[in-house]
Design a protein around this nucleic acid. Structure first.
Length: 263
DNA sequence: ATGGTAGGAAGCCTA
């Protein structure tokens, strides 16, 4: 039976991480990859290195900060760059496109720290804009996956130190409530849906030996429309890349969706 | 102990 594997990975600079990304793509061979924090203008993106591995690209980058991309073995169609709802927002944090039967988006939510700065309300407004956009996508009854670095740790059990992070923008109640409002539209958070009692992280800080101590957080998520959730076969966090040399501070999360006509 | 590390910028900012 045919299936499609869709991964999400915050790479923290595509140029610095190119050896990690290419070795992982060659080994894991995902059909679609949603990248965040590419930190690279589109013209400077290492297109040929990824093309050599058989991937088409859709890019929404900027200099030095943010930047998202979609890689896919199949053709990428109907690309949308940017999240609607704020014409003043020039940060490259959203790209969406169609790959075969799936509409996919690479999402890089604002971090939101420090919470007493304008960054925190920007994050909450961004989450609300994403919710409103997801409402429109749901109205089209499409099979879609919104994957990325949400910078939201959904519950205390998704954080190695809930007390220490209680006031952090990743764990604040306002962030969690806005994330739940998105889920309450009827989206399925793939990893938790398949691991209801599971323990898993997708991010470990560079400082303080967090990786070695397993001081991590689960902040990278794959959100599925009902039509995509019907097809959900598996969802796993691949910790391999985080343990390599010169790693990103995030590791990939990957889901497998049935892609036959029988669904 | 208000640090620590990483990346990209350009003589700090973001995470």
């Amino acid at each position: 039976m045919a299936s499609m594997r869709i991964a999400s990975w915050n790479v923290n600079s595509i140029k610095a991480r190119l050896p990690r990304v290419t070795e992982w793509l060659a080994a894991a061979r995902p059909d679609v990859v949603l990248l965040q924090e590419t930190k690279c203008e589109d013209a400077a993106f290492p297109e040929s290195e990824l093309g050599d591995l058989g991937y088409n690209l859709a890019l929404a980058g900027q200099k030095a900060y943010n930047g998202v991309a979609i890689l896919a073995k199949r053709p990428i169609e109907d690309v949308r760059q940017g999240l609607p709802g704020d014409p003043e927002d020039g940060q490259a944090r959203y790209i969406e496109a169609t790959v075969g039967t799936f509409r996919v988006a690479s999402v890089y939510l604002p971090n939101g720290n420090p919470v007493d700065s304008d960054k925190f309300p920007y994050k909450l407004k961004w989450l609300d804009r994403l919710r409103r956009h997801a409402e429109r996508l749901l109205a089209e009854e499409e099979c879609f996956v919104l994957g990325g670095d949400y910078n939201v740790c959904p519950e205390d059990r998704d954080c190695f130190d809930p007390r220490g992070f209680a006031a952090d923008a990743l764990c604040r109640p306002e962030s969690r409530a806005a994330f739940r409002a998105l889920l309450h539209l009827g989206l399925t958070e793939a990893w938790r849906a398949l691991h209801p009692a599971g323990h898993g992280y997708t991010y470990w800080d560079y400082t303080g030996g967090a990786w070695q101590k397993d001081h991590g957080l689960r902040i990278d998520h794959l959100l599925l429309s009902p039509q995509a959730a019907d097809r959900l076969l598996a969802c796993e966090i691949d910790k391999g890349p985080r343990g390599r040399e010169r790693p990103s501070d995030h590791t990939p999360i990957c889901c497998e969706l049935r892609d036959g006509n029988d669904a």
